[in-house]
Amino acid sequence: MKIDRRFFIRKVMAVGVLLAVPRILFAARPDKAFAATDGDQAMASLFGETPAASDRVVLKIPEIAENGAVVPVTISTDLENVESISVVVANNPTPLAASFALGPRSVANVSVRIKMGESSQVLAIVKADGKLYSASKDVKVTIGGCGG
């Protein structure tokens, strides 16, 4: 179990330049889907239907979450013209965790860290060319991350 120790002792701190936020930038967030308290409801609100499973959606998430407060998720797909990628945690109090809107220049590969209150099915839903595709995994949580 050898690792590159230098990885842990490298000293990189990112620096950026602060900006003012132009309000106009933000488009319409699907507030209703985020308020939904069950997964199907969230998906119905987002998409009007429940997506079908597809092996072209790759959902990378641990089988056993080390800690429900921080569960790393990566979703990618080789589908073309991806419009959005969404993450639904079925057993969370509000199942829709995140929805990403992509554009013509996007590479369909996003990562985020999410909270899981308990063990649950996690779904990744990709909308591409107007069609829905999904992948799901069951994730076991032993230390809960107080919901969301």
């Binding site: 842990f8 641990p62 089988e63 921080v70």
Partner: peptide
């Protein structure tokens, strides 16, 4: 490897280690 002990429990648990590496 002895230097792995500096990584605490992640020296032993592959699944937890992968998540830790993502955090790091």
């Amino acid at each position: 490897a002895p230097e792995e002990f500096a990584n605490g429990l992640y020296a032993f648990d592959e699944g937890a280690r992968a998540q830790w590496l993502e955090l790091e």
